[in-house]
Design a protein around this nucleic acid. Structure first.
Lengths: 336, 336
DNA sequence: TTGAAAGCGCTAACAG
DNA sequence: CTGTTAGCGCTTTCAA
């Protein structure tokens, strides 16, 4: 039944050459006579030889041809598109992706980092859920390149690939102001996330100019899942003087808000952060960007580091753009 | 800068015991004196020792604590939820997921299988894009357990986890018939996919009873992406006698159909296969199921096989259920 | 152009 | 309870 995989040694015996010669042939090195190579190849073929990647990578100092990817949840479309972008970029260089979800929990993230480093991944791409990056920095110093995606760490200086969050929010709010909105609400994620903070900063920058100190009146942070976002949206609408427009700070929050807003005749205008599959069908105005690109750029940065590039940390900022659709509606004409 | 990770041997020297003893402590084996263990642990801690998983797994006959997952595209929500389900089930037993996309191309799938087997994964979860499973079967016989997800192979007898596709489609069509529809269209994926064929079978079963040999009139197979689905939908609507209802056979096709149908006053009723994030907001009737569960069941089947279970192949069929929403509308009253 | 020897870090197997 | 020995499959010296 389960005849074991032949080893390189078996191929050597079969073809009557040394292991080193087989190794040379298998790895396409030079300095092998054509007929020797042919003989070895034939033997390998016949025996069904396949090099043992574990053995190869185990050798001194070597690392596995594997990259660890840590995100909050593989099934979140934002993260899974990052994964796709990274996978595509890593394909040709021959790396596989070990992907894992931290469920947005710092403790779990640390376990994953340990696990991946123990497995000697060649590098780490991480959308960190942790504020403290001492562990990651330690591993980086020990020799595992790390690239931070989406959320830039504030406690260490490392390679990052992030969105232009503040700019995106400025565009969103600027657009709503142009359309005449003044009571603009914001439903946002946990304040500890740097992305969230930057988006709030953008919101404030533009709003303060328009409405002054009152800018924070309709800001509701802390929604980390669809349900919480729905509740925050509902509470905004229940205000005495409800906002005429709402911006959300990520795809899940947009989903939650939509669940509340859909079908309401008095629904405020809406601009969501992150584009999503059916945004065009639903006619939702969004701050769009390309998550695949984030994965791709991160992977390439990592490959450079793996290749020995030890220049100072690089900080990539990916552009975002406002895609105007029906949900940001016609200009508001009602008095404040 | 990059002081290398200490080895088990270093810990042994530091604490003045043999490597085997350190190994025992590190692996929590019994028969170690409490104070010896304490000393070893202290040394390990002090040196920052971490076992080299590669070395550990490399050893004779051992396999890596890794499971390969092959799907069409990590960023497709159906697949990424399978990944999540599998990841969660594999977490406690200590396995990591090496996930890769075959882009629905058989050639790429074979490359991936080779790559993963070379890396000595403990098992393989695969949503196969290939009709020919000789390679996978060969690897299975060589000792790598394989579980087929979503699409059952017809050429080999192996463990499978699939949906009750025909039943789902029967429910969808039965529901539309009940509402009075007779001209029911179907926009479907590539005919070579077993899932698609089964869904068509379900469609035919119910339709033949209602409309006889005419059941195939509005069936359009072969749409493998959103755009093709949109085109097929458009062409259905352009018929002289267009269908009053349309069923789609997966989430991407539903997206394509929605792009065409949304906003059309004469839009036919719609039932989609696969539930999706905003289906409730959009009010789309769907055949729902739980992709996480598919990943979970597949992972557990695999774990059983890894554990040595060599019972005959098991075939898990997961239930689907019709979720009625607005898109399947009010009963049709127009004459045929 | 080819080969021999050594060793990566760890753990079974077998003593003590 | 603890230690010794051997070896996983491969590649890197170094030598022929």
């Amino acid at each position: 039944m389960s005849n074991p995989r032949p080893t390189l040694q078996a191929v050597a015996e079969r073809s009557g050459v040394s292991m080193k010669t087989v190794s040379r042939v298998v790895n396409g090195e030079r300095y092998v006579a054509a007929d020797t190579a042919a003989r070895v190849l034939a033997a390998a073929e016949e025996l069904g030889f396949r090099p043992n990647a574990l053995a190869r990578e185990f050798r001194a100092g070597a690392r596995s041809a594997t990259i660890g990817l840590i995100t909050g949840d593989v099934a979140n479309p934002f993260y899974s598109r990052i994964a796709r972008g990274a996978e595509h970029a890593l394909r040709d260089p021959g790396y596989s992706l070990l992907s894992a979800s931290n469920d947005e929990e710092p403790a779990r993230e640390r376990t994953l980092v340990t696990q991946l480093v123990d497995r000697r991944v060649s590098g780490l791409l991480v959308v960190s859920a942790d504020d403290d990056h001492a562990q990651l920095d330690e591993e980086r110093r020990r020799g595992t390149p790390v690239v931070f995606l989406d959320r830039a760490p504030t406690d260490v200086d490392a390679d990052t690939v992030v969105l232009d969050n503040a700019d995106g929010m400025r565009q969103a709010v600027g657009h709503l102001l142009e359309r005449g909105h003044r009571r603009i609400g914001l439903v946002g994620d946990l304040s500890r996330l740097s992305t969230h903070r930057e988006r709030i900063d953008g919101f404030r920058d533009v709003m303060r100019q328009a409405v002054g100190g009152d800018w924070e009146r309709y800001v509701r942070s802390g929604s980390h899942d669809v349900r919480a976002a729905a509740e925050a949206t509902t509470s905004l609408l229940a205000e005495a003087d409800p906002p005429t427009a709402i911006v959300t700070t990520n795809n899940r929050i947009t989903t939650g808000a939509l669940g509340v807003l859909a079908g309401r005749p008095d629904a405020p205008a809406l601009v969501g952060f992150d584009d999503f599959d059916l945004a065009d069908v639903l006619g939702i105005t969004v701050v769009a960007h390309d998550p695949d690109e984030m994965g791709r750029v991160g992977a390439e940065e990592l490959l450079a580091r793996i290749g020995g590039d030890d220049a100072p940390a690089r900080h990539h900022v990916l552009p975002v753009r406002l895609v105007v659709r029906r949900s940001s509606g016609a200009p508001v004409t009602t008095a404040s």
